[in-house]
Design a protein around this nucleic acid. Structure first.
Lengths: 79, 79, 79, 79
DNA sequence: ACGTTTGCGCTTTAGC
DNA sequence: GCTAAAGCGCAAACGT
């Protein structure tokens, strides 16, 4: 029946849209990896950059809380 | 010293480029999430779609692995 | 031939030893997860504990270098 | 204050427990590494053994995934 | 809302 | 030394 084909087509189109977006995400992840490789090639520490990016993505007060918590834990073990 | 400021500026610019790409990735993740929400709103099963998308990409990977394994075996018997 | 059987048995035993050790590792990983769950239940921040454990696993001078580097990067972006 | 010291001690003990388990895991990883080295020394192909071990565990996983997918499809058509 | 489970990306190690 | 693979941690997603 035509209605079934139509429904199947709509579902197929939806799935294909999802696949395209997943591909985009994968592609973007590769671009990010390339950027960090470029950072490394220019003498920067990629791991440290990632760390700072993560810190900056936090809200200010969240970051301050995190810093304080880590200080407490480090003090507890003396390092 | 001016050199230090220059170096710090370059580092800052690099980190900001990284941040922008991370933001893009986050934005894309939200888009994907929205797409699945739209699927759900249209009566589709988001989980099933995710499963199918994953299977399609996984089969390729499995096939590649199989091809590689066959290559190993062929090499082992020299043919 | 008996020699072939012997050789095959030895290989099989070896593979089974490998599998057992992989299982042990998996089991240990579960134990670690449980421990962090217990930490959380007692009001500790599991993520912060992981962070400190990682820092402590570094050599002292490596950790100091890491701390210094992060300070430089954080200063560059002002956070 | 004494209460603070007590709390810090408890935290320290917890972190040390975590560290011990991490050490155990690291030690086990080394044991596995040694086992593969022994395999190589005995003329076995370590890579092939790893591959076989991985395949054995993967097949189980794949079968489970397949069973789950069949369940989804059966549910979709109500049988 | 919470805990569990799963997928995804980063890190590190092994092999070439 | 570089590329490929595997372990590991984190975070989002699903069910309770």
């Amino acid at each position: 029946m035509a209605g079934d084909n139509l429904a199947a087509d709509q579902l197929r189109l939806f799935i294909e849209r999802c696949e395209r977006m997943h591909d985009e995400r994968k592609s973007l992840a590769e671009d990010i990896r390339d950027l960090y490789a470029e950072a490394k090639a220019n003498g920067y520490d990629a791991k440290a950059i990632r760390h700072v990016v993560r810190l900056r993505s936090m809200e200010t007060h969240t970051r301050q809380e995190w810093d304080a918590l880590v200080e407490v834990y480090r003090a507890a073990v003396g390092c």
